[in-house]
Design a protein around this nucleic acid. Sequence first.
DNA 1: AGGTCGACCTGGCAGC
DNA 2: TGCTGCCAGGTCGACC
Length: 268
Amino acid sequence: MPELPEVETIACDLRTAVQGKLFSDVTVHDAFLLRQKERDFVRRLKGQAVDKISRRGKALIIGLSSGEFLIVQLMMTGQLIVNARRDSHTRISFVFSDGTVLLYNDQRRFGQLRVVADLGEVKHFSVLGPEPFSEEFTPGFISEEFQKTSRPVKNVLLDHTFVAGIGNIYACEILFRARLSPKRQARRITPQEIKRIHQCIIEVLKEAILHRGSSMRNYRDGSGQKGRFNERLSVYAREGLLCSVCRRPIERITQAGRSTFYCGHCQK
DNA sequence: AGGTCGACCTGGCAGC
DNA sequence: TGCTGCCAGGTCGACC
């Protein structure tokens, strides 16, 4: 499901809704999603207050007063929704001492939740590339990484060991904004174009956060609302519709097993 | 070693 | 209506 802008939106909503509150009850309806024993998971949450809420890539990090962390990987269809009605996709219910209820819903059951003492225990984080908004993520960095590979640029943008948080929707949108063909070999992209990509990555992600993310099927924010950025998508899921710039039809191809949407005329 | 592909799971939708 | 096949925002491990 969610990419960086969606997870950032959820993190922001949760800060308002549950930060500072105490977990008074945790009910696991589907232990399949836990990466540890259910009893251990519940024991380490109950009685803890929610401290700092942050994000790394597409994962949510919920700090606890014990110093531990609740890590939530929403994957494709995970949702964290405050004060909603439980449904058939609700996998975990968190109840706070003031009565606030937080539901973890997940249609496809790909999501993963765990409590860790140290973020170093999360193997996924150790292989993750830099955050797109970090100082480390510069045109120079992109250039160096692009030189190392013969893969098409689209596949590199999707690679979380290169940069954290970009998924299929935003990889397509970024390349459209940068007017770059998704099929271009990363190492053949010019310094000028790399500057453009760097700028577009930041612009597109920031705009998406501003519009509270993109809702295709399942994404909802912390209050259960859809994001609005999908109304502004230029190419993703728009096969056959006309390009907003040149009025030619948007094309769809498969790269590394995933759909890529682009304008064959505008993106060179 | 770099890169691709299938598996993981559920459900919605199109086509017959 | 009901079946089949395809598709989906992510990540990991197997394999070439």
